[in-house]
């Protein structure tokens, strides 16, 4: 059995010599930019826990508002329907 990695057979050599498969330039640049932004943001927020918490809250707020509004509306709709038809 040939040992992959340190073998001297032709298949082992072919495996070692497979060409690099890189991302296309646009994807590579898009990923780099997004990752560097996240890196800088993470590092900036690291020293300021209050700011990190504020940002997390700001991110969580819109979905919470939507869920709250839908919940209140549903409660109102059910109680109104109950008041109108519940007695009969």
């Amino acid at each position: 059995m040939n040992e992959p990695g340190n073998d001297d057979d032709s298949v082992g050599r072919e495996l070692r010599d497979l060409p690099a498969r890189d991302a296309d330039a646009r994807t590579a640049e898009r990923v780099r930019r997004a990752a560097v932004d996240a890196f800088v943001e993470t590092h900036t927020l690291r020293g300021r826990p209050w700011r990190a918490m504020a940002m997390r809250t700001a991110r969580a707020l819109p979905p919470l508002i939507v869920v709250g509004t839908v919940g209140i509306y549903l409660a109102w709709a059910i109680s109104t329907a109950n008041a109108l038809f519940g007695g009969h």
Binding site: T27, R30, V31, R32, A35, V36, A38, F39, H43
Partner: peptide
Amino acid sequence: RLSGRRDVADDLLQETWMRLARAAA
């Protein structure tokens, strides 16, 4: 080579480097 799909490799590349961005410190 793991996924066999360029679109998947693109996404996973981004996830990998985002993970490094957040865990670097």
